[in-house]
């Protein structure tokens, strides 16, 4: 079970003060949290690199968390920022299959997760843009294959990826 918000916040406060033991526990919990967070929206082969990239970002930017604010929305903002960067840069290997998505349970923790989730970002961009990004950047299809699968022209797929990523970058801090 992954640590809850108060536990992570407490560990982060200790980490900002230089407590290495608390920091090790925190990073381990953050790693588990990130693996679950990215599960559906990242190719499994890239998950490892993305999680490590965010762990490094958490380390380098740990001073940017204000202890009077909740920890998980801060972590989610960094995770989203790195994810959009990742979508821009990385193509998934064609043989990797997406893992099944476990529907969130109806609990307070899951409600918080849903609010912070990557899905919330995808539903705020037009369907054609999320489809083009999903096919090319997450499933790893070529532009031509994505065009054939989606029924969009190749130019439209390129334009929709470009515009979609731009919109996603602007949605990193949006909660609704």
């Amino acid at each position: 079970m992954i640590a809850d918000e108060p536990t992570m916040a407490r560990l982060m406060i200790a980490s900002q003060k230089g407590d290495k033991q608390a920091y090790t526990v925190l990073l381990t919990e953050v790693q588990l949290w990130l693996e679950r967070y990215y599960r559906r929206r990242c190719a499994p082969a890239m998950l490892d690199d993305l999680v490590q990239d965010v762990l490094l970002a958490v380390h380098n930017k740990r001073a940017s968390w204000d202890p009077v604010r909740p920890f998980l929305p801060w972590l989610a903002a960094i995770a989203r920022y790195r994810w959009v960067d990742h979508l821009r840069k990385v193509y998934r290997n064609a043989e990797d299959a997406l893992e099944d998505y476990d529907a969130p349970e109806d609990s307070e923790e899951e409600a918080v997760m849903a609010r912070l989730s990557l899905e919330r970002m995808f539903v705020q961009i037009p369907d054609k843009q999320s489809e083009a990004i999903g096919l090319v950047k997450i499933e790893g299809l070529s532009i031509a294959e994505a065009a054939e699968r989606s029924g969009q022209s190749q130019s439209a797929v390129k334009v929709n990826i470009h515009r979609g990523l731009k919109k996603l970058a602007a949605l990193v801090e949006k909660a609704e």
Binding site: K20, T24, L27, A63
Partner: peptide, 17 residues
């Protein structure tokens, strides 16, 4: 990676508005 980052840990002053 976690071990390395923990070894590198130094106290930081949190950003305050």
């Amino acid at each position: 990676l976690i071990e390395r980052l923990s070894d590198d840990l130094e106290p930081v002053r949190a950003i305050r508005t």
